[in-house]
Design a protein around this nucleic acid. Structure first.
Length: 543
DNA sequence: CGGCTGTACTG
DNA sequence: CAGTAC
DNA sequence: GCCG
DNA sequence: CTATG
DNA sequence: CATAG
């Protein structure tokens, strides 16, 4: 009797979810039904309970705006109500950031109805861009008064008491192309920590740090185009939009005409036209078109499944599939794609920093258990200090330079035995015996002890002598990696996650001639120094 | 017109 | 090799 | 899509 | 069938 | 996977 619970993509109610303990009442008026369903599911999944009536135990009320709210609930009850009355946007932002965000910015005021109330607050749309790594909402309000909010940046840098953090103001560095690349400056970054940025500060004296998110109207639309073009396989085009966003974000004024951006790097004819249309009409017809096109929407959706890219998404669309549930019956899917599909929602859910920290510790213990002295750290956005992460990037090595060999398979087995690793995506392991020094890789899904929610995890094992390169690569972010590789290239080297090599350019050396060994560096800083790149602490690498 | 990082696994 | 992911 |  | 791309 | 050996 094939029990068809097909529509059951409810991952698993999590008593420890970010909404645990709160009780909500939803004003459904004015909400698209589809979105409402998703939100309800998410609320329950993350530990909230949903009330049918505005009772006493309700802690949070949600509505799209004041009008809808008053239309469904009478004002008197509301004035007596003690809990939060919020815009749904609070939900969206909390979900995408992986933790409850402060309610302050989303409060609906009852008394200010005659004035214009929420026009300002409605602009916080902040779609989740999974562009590459992580874009943190981070509402900069770093005034003197309170830093009780957000981050507790206690990363591993409590040690810079002696050497004052000179950087820190680099958040908004200047134009796109002041790469430090004077050939003979390899040592300069040591002598003058942050020296070359002093000039920048002089030029921008009155802007301590506030990137007034103006022109968000434009960057938001471009952000969506990035994802759409990528889903369609037009990576190059997508990348153009990707590059132009930081350029626009740095502008200190609001764009009102395309002439104001003419000539900026990355802005050509098309970009000008698009910007012109946005500032005059408030929207972009090209995007509207994409967003209403069923084919584009479906292919974008399919492409969000781990293991399904533009080509496969298109094939599936042409085979007639339209929903994720349909896909489950397709037998041409690879193993990875099935797993990606089954845990679609789990994988898209972000991981609170604290949980990552706990799991890192768990991994370190388990590792030490089977190979004393093994070095295990969590890289990625976690190492860069983010308050939530999309996945776990675990980088592993061993100080003795050889006992890393064969470690991964034992480690994985162990982690499966203790029920931490739950599904495999990719598992390669060359250096089983003593073949040689290659990088072992494992991609899969794991769960926090006692829970069922699947988290993406990557394990990479490096021989000690190229560990620094692996660590740099897997800490990112991607912009930093690209800059480093570009810089290496300009100096006649090739940089990747396995080393820094003298350029084997064109001449004769077939591609197979990879026999050349990497230059030896023991730490990240040595690599930065050698390339003449200013040192960035991990938490400063969110470019 | 070709580059836009460069590498590795799956099937 | 094409496709995909990092 | 932009750049050289 | 395995090796290769 | 498609193809070569």
């Amino acid at each position: 009797m094939a029990p068809k619970k097909s529509k059951n993509r409810t991952p698993s109610p999590d008593p420890n979810g970010i909404f645990s303990g709160i009780s909500v009442y939803l004003v459904e008026k004015g909400v698209q039904n589809r979105r409402l369903q998703v939100w309800k599911q998410k609320l329950v999944q993350m530990g909230a309970t949903i009330e049918e009536r505005l009772s006493k135990k309700v802690s949070h009320v949600f509505a799209v705006d004041l009008n809808s709210l008053l239309q469904q609930v009478d004002r008197e009850r509301l004035t007596r109500y003690k809990g939060f009355i919020l815009l749904y946007q609070w939900l969206v932002d909390s979900l995408s950031s992986g933790e409850k965000v402060s309610e302050d910015l989303y409060l609906l005021n009852l008394d200010s109805e005659e004035d214009n109330i929420a026009d300002k607050s409605l602009d916080w749309k902040q779609e989740n861009e999974n562009v590459s790594s992580d874009c943190e909402p981070l509402h900069h309000k770093r005034i003197k008064s309170s830093h009780e909010d957000v981050e507790s940046f206690k990363v591993e840098s409590k040690r810079d008491a002696d050497n004052n953090a000179v950087s820190e103001t680099l958040n908004s560095s200047i134009s796109s192309d002041n790469l430090p690349d004077s050939p003979s400056t390899a040592s300069m970054s040591l002598d003058t920590p942050g020296g070359q940025f002093k000039d920048v500060n002089v030029l921008q004296p009155s802007l301590p740090y506030s990137p007034p998110d103006l022109n968000k109207n434009i960057t938001e639309i471009f952000g969506k185009l990035i994802n759409i073009y990528r889903a369609l396989g037009e990576d190059r085009r997508s990348f153009s939009y990707y590059k132009v966003i930081p350029v626009i974000e740095k502008l200190p004024f609001k764009i009102e005409s395309a002439d104001q951006v003419k000539g900026l790097p990355g802005i050509g004819k098309s970009m000008q036209d698009h910007i012109q249309e946005i500032v005059t009409n408030g929207n972009l017809s090209k995007l509207e078109h994409f967003e209403t096109d069923e084919k584009v929407r479906t292919i974008s959706l399919f492409g969000e499944v781990w293991g399904i890219g533009p080509a496969t998404a298109q094939k599936l669309y042409e085979k007639g599939y339209r929903t994720l549930d349909d896909l489950k019956s397709e037998d041409s899917l690879t193993h990875s794609q099935r797993v990606g599909l089954k845990y679609f929602d789990d994988i898209k859910t972000r991981i609170p920093r604290q949980e990552v920290q706990d799991m890192e510790l768990l991994l370190q213990k388990a590792g030490e258990d089977i190979l004393p002295g093994v070095d295990i750290v969590c890289g990625g956005s976690f190492r860069r200090g983010k308050s939530s992460c999309g996945d776990l990037d675990i980088v592993i090595t061993h100080p003795d330079g050889k006992s890393h060999k064969g470690f991964l398979s034992r480690f994985v087995k162990r982690l499966k035995d203790m029920n931490f690793l739950r599904e495999d995506l990719i598992f390669s392991t060359h250096s089983e015996e003593d073949s040689d020094s290659c990088v072992d890789t494992y991609f899969g899904l794991c769960t926090y002890p006692g829970r069922e929610l699947r988290r993406r995890i990557d394990l990479k094992v490096y021989p000690r002598d190229i560990y620094a390169f692996g660590l740099i690569h897997w800490t990112g972010n991607d912009v930093l990696n690209r800059r480093l590789r570009l810089l290496a290239d300009s100096k006649g080297y090739r940089l990747d996650d396995t080393g820094l090599f003298p350029a084997t350019h064109g001449s004769g050396g077939k591609k197979g001639a990879k026999a050349s060994t990497s230059l030896k560096f023991g730490t990240e800083k040595e690599v930065f120094d050698f390339l003449g790149f200013p040192w960035f602490e991990p938490h400063e690498r969110n470019l």
